[in-house]
């Protein structure tokens, strides 16, 4: 019998870096693949500029706790987020970090680290705000949690008609990110 699929991940960064958005995109794509999903945010005032994080669980089976003590994967966009969540990452877990903004060395030895210069890449392709999609691309390519196609379908849904023009740049950012995540 195939072991049922299970993944949990914490995504963290500054408010405004689009960390909540890529978390939602991840569950959108995964749901389209028939998975059970949960997304739970840090919530409250001062989101913009403060640290924001969300926890995502993706599973073949019904999901118990949507709150995760030690996640299998971590996407961090800045130094405070690395400080907060690095100690909690599971042994052997995957850390995808934004090397454009993270200046310190990773302390843990028992994890896989993927550094992605997300801000530089996003600037190169013409939209600084797409750094989040670069990060998601690296994560998805490395972990194969969900297919690229379903992420792009999800992106279409989430952008909707109003932000349709943002699709191409976000897609490009995601694809660029994937190059960093390839094993």
């Amino acid at each position: 019998m195939k072991t049922p699929f299970y993944e949990d991940i914490i995504l963290a960064g500054f408010g405004g870096q689009g960390i909540m958005f890529i978390g939602k995109l991840l569950i959108h794509g995964s749901m389209k693949e028939g998975k059970n999903v949960t997304w739970i945010p840090s919530y409250g005032p001062a989101m913009r500029g403060g640290t924001a994080n969300c926890t995502v669980v993706i599973s073949d089976e019904a999901i118990g706790s949507p709150v995760i003590s030690s996640p299998h994967s971590l996407i961090v966009m800045n130094n405070p987020s690395l400080d907060a969540f690095e100690p909690r990452l599971k042994e052997g877990g995957v850390l995808v970090m934004n090397s454009s903004l993270i200046t310190r060395k990773v302390k843990r030895k028992n994890i896989t680290v993927i550094g992605v210069p997300a801000n530089e890449i996003a600037s190169e392709i013409g939209d600084k705000r797409a750094a989040n999609m670069v990060m998601l691309g690296a994560y998805v390519a490395h972990t194969k949690t969900v297919s690229k196609e379903k992420i792009l379908e999800g992106l279409t849904d989430l952008l909707g008609e109003k932000k349709r023009q943002l699709f191409e740049v976000n897609k490009k950012a995601f694809e660029k990110g994937m190059e960093f995540g390839k094993v």
């Binding site: 939602k24 569950i27 749901m31 059970n36 999903v37 949960t38 997304w39 739970i40 945010p41 919530y43 999901i63 949507p66 709150v67």
Partner: peptide, 10 residues
């Protein structure tokens, strides 16, 4: 509770 209100699920 606050988490049930804020969390997203299908």
């Amino acid at each position: 509770d606050g988490f049930l209100g804020q969390m997203i699920e299908p």
